[in-house]
């Protein structure tokens, strides 16, 4: 398969959330969320209820994919940082550890410089956590110890979803 399965466990989820919570405070941001490159929302902190984070996640991934395609066409590996400036709110989008997208939404209470600085530090921490997560998932898969809840689903379970 093209990519290993993305799996998230409690322990890493907490670690990740504490990193982005800290980033939220230090960068004076409104919302921060993490998205898988395939468009799946991993986690979000801040005023998330004010925004449609599922749609934002999907469009962010599309955005990163499109700019990645542009990068390849001009001979770059990727564009690792994108910045969108609005009248009030701005988006800082960056790729973490080659696989995950970190999105920071901020307004005039913060600044691009501050966000960039804090994102850099948080990215290093997140890269380590996601690296460990990937290894853990691979090891679990190798040892066959997946404790995967779907191994025991029945056809009835699946049919019930559509009833």
């Amino acid at each position: 398969m093209a990519n290993p399965q993305m799996v998230m466990y409690d322990e890493e989820f907490k670690q990740i959330n504490s990193v982005i919570e800290k980033l939220l405070k230090e960068a004076n941001a409104k919302v921060i969320f993490l998205v898988d490159k395939n468009g799946q929302l991993i986690s979000g902190v801040g005023e998330t209820e004010r925004f449609d984070t599922t749609s934002l996640a999907s469009l962010t991934a599309g955005n990163i994919a499109a700019t990645g395609g542009m990068a390849k066409l001009i001979g770059e590996k990727e564009f690792s940082i994108l910045f969108h400036e609005g009248e009030k709110d701005n988006l800082h989008i960056s790729i973490v550890g080659g696989r995950v997208i970190l999105v920071v939404l901020f307004d005039s209470r913060s600044s691009l410089g501050l966000v960039r600085l804090r994102v850099k530090k948080a990215s290093d921490e997140l890269t380590i956590i996601f690296g460990g997560l990937l290894k853990k998932a691979e090891e679990k898969e190798k040892s066959g110890d997946t404790d995967f809840p779907f191994a025991e689903i029945t056809d009835d379970d699946i049919d019930n979803l559509f009833s």
Partner: peptide, 15 residues
């Protein structure tokens, strides 16, 4: 690939 989140108990798939 599907994304399995044990923390929030979610499975996301892409069609």
């Amino acid at each position: 690939m599907s994304f399995i989140n044990y923390a929030s108990r979610e499975i996301n798939c892409k069609i």
